[in-house]
Nucleic acid binder design. Structure first.
Lengths: 349, 349
DNA sequence: CTTGACCCTGACGTACCGTCAGGGCCTAGA
DNA sequence: TCTAGGCCCTGACGGTACGTCAGGGTCAAG
């Protein structure tokens, strides 16, 4: 069974011109032609068109879409899961915008005059409304080799096995698995941990997401819990090599704060990669966040905080866990040394 | 208090270039300049920017937005209400797409292979996702003269007064009001009743919408109910002039079917205006819907249906109520006469 | 007085199509 | 068999909403 352009256009709500265009740029070539030269689209073309549309919804350019599809990236189930994720994001944003707007509406109908800040916030919500991820970030996520997929599957299988056999999370085996997981995750997002955070891939705690993650990757809640505990134990164990017992006692690292530190680390890495100076306001404000988080972790004890810093600077295991490396830590050190001498007036993009 | 372009850009998430562009085309001119020629944006500019962004969300082009704003159209509360409406629409569509996608996902993870129809439906939902209304339709709705606003207010006030005084809906006064309401609504959408339906302006029954309608126009639920009953009574009274008592008994016109007939009538009008032939498949399928609805209304009695047709053809009051007129009914008649001789193969846009 | 982040005004570039133009294909009805 | 009307083809130009330089002033801090 096959469709002509016009039929396909009617069925999908696209225009004939758009389909022609996709053909012209080699994005979607009909798999058949009639004797008279009519384009004939078949099942495979339709599925490809679905993927194209799905990717376009994520604001990828046609060129980027072509690149993703060319690499056989994004197997269908993962892609659909991604779509679902994005839809949730949209719904969330729609609700945020909605409440902001109805608040404005209320003020206006009561005869009030909202202040500039209210309008600005509303404008920002509108402009942010249909942004999900920057497209190069997305592209990295969507291009997924089969080898990589196997690696995930292997780790997850081993994790599940460990759960079944009741292997303690403190065991070396469990710790190795946790380490491999972290490594794979980092390679997956090209070292951009901030992106991973944004995509809720790491330390995620959303209820509904777990079900989808399970369907997508076979990572059921029990296994996920095991993994989380293993990561958490590994983290503490790593710190234990640098702190004494009382200091460890004081250590307080709730999940969301850990995520924050990961995010800040990721953004610092981006800043460094972008060649930003250590005294730039962007880097400086990130370092300020960094300091605040370490303050929190150390319970406000400057000595502990200092030891933590040194540990992060020197310990490769810790660095792996926190997506850091020596050069990044050096960057952070320099930024800290610049200290309060930054100008601190002009913002950053 | 004022902002430079860069500041405004950061605060709103827009780019400096975009703001420059808006200035270049005269859409948003900063109300001040610094001595050195820097653009300075103040509160009024921010509010205008909000309106621009809000309208852009509805897929109006910048030119169209400029036109709307130039006519002082779309007072803020109404605009925000419109935004809320659109957001609801989006959320609805997002949920529709979501369920369709998760169904696909389920089939895929079970190892199944969805058929072409499933993919097509998904693609269609995606492409329809961010369409709300065609922009000329929207523009008609957004450009709202003050005189018109006063007319609405006047009718609503009189309706409320009628409710308070317990004027029966059968009274001439109530009927006149209902008639004026219908007339105003038709003029509001330029006679395009299908649009009114789409915008849920007529015979709407959404729960949450009523609250907003009240805030927007002062039309509280009680008054709305009164109006609805008046319209309903007027409709039956109009038919009573053409049908005998037993026929009236059989008449069955639930709200949603009435809306359907209004929609079909509106689309027929569009088709006629577009110069489509009475034998085109588009018109023919609309007429088929029309016939089916009349069958339903008449309870399947061909004689009653026939009388209804004649009444619609001849009675100006009925025509006003149903957004018809003599020329449209003639068009319908011709289309019906063409009957089953149409080709019925090629679709329409 | 320099430096670096900001601002200005052009001016050209780009993505994703919309919209003809000029011409062939195909099927139903005369 | 012819023709009309709807579909299809391949160019080719146009258009919107900006992105992205280029070349050059502005401003505050050190």
């Amino acid at each position: 069974m096959s469709f002509t352009v016009g039929q396909l256009a009617r069925l999908t709500g696209l225009t004939v011109r758009a389909l022609h265009h996709y053909h012209a740029i080699g994005l979607l070539e009909p798999s058949q032609r009639s004797d008279s030269g009519y384009r004939l689209y078949t099942q495979v073309d339709i599925v490809r068109l679905f993927r194209i549309q799905a990717l376009q919804r994520l604001n990828l350019s046609l060129e980027e879409i072509a690149a993703v599809l060319a690499k056989n990236g994004a197997p269908l189930p993962e892609m659909i899961a991604q779509q679902l994720d994005e839809l949730d994001d949209r719904i969330e944003k729609a609700n945020a915008l909605r409440s902001r707007l109805s608040q404005l509406h209320e003020v206006l109908t009561r005869g009030g005059e909202p202040v500039a800040g209210d309008w600005l916030a509303a404008v920002e919500l509108i402009t942010q409304y249909d942004k999900y991820c920057s497209s190069d970030e997305l592209q990295r996520l969507l291009v997924y080799s089969n080898a990589e997929k196997d690696q995930w599957r292997a780790i997850i299988d081993e994790l599940r096995e460990a759960v079944r056999r009741d292997v303690p999370v403190q065991s070396e085996h469990a710790q190795t698995l946790a380490d491999r997981w972290m490594q794979l995750m980092l390679s997956r997002v090209g070292g951009d941990i901030a992106l991973a955070i944004k995509m809720k891939l790491a330390y995620q705690a959303q209820p509904d997401l777990q079900a989808r993650m399970q369907a997508q990757s076979g990572l059921d809640p029990a296994t996920l819990d095991y993994l989380t505990r293993a990561l958490r134990h590994g983290n503490l164990a790593a710190w234990a090599r640098h702190l004494d017992a009382p200091a460890l006692e004081r250590l307080s690292m709730p999940d969301d704060r850990m995520r924050e530190l990961l995010r800040v680390a990721g953004e610092l890495r981006s800043a460094m990669a972008a060649g930003e100076g250590v005294d730039g306001i962007g880097v400086q404000s990130l370092v300020a966040e960094w300091e605040a988080l370490l303050d929190e972790f150390s319970g406000g004890d400057a000595a502990i905080k200092d030891r933590m810093h040194q540990a992060l600077h020197a310990d490769a295991l810790l660095q792996r866990r926190w997506a850091l490396d020596a050069s990044l830590m050096e960057f952070v050190q320099r930024a800290r040394n610049v200290g309060r001498n930054g100008r601190g007036i002009h913002g950053r993009a």
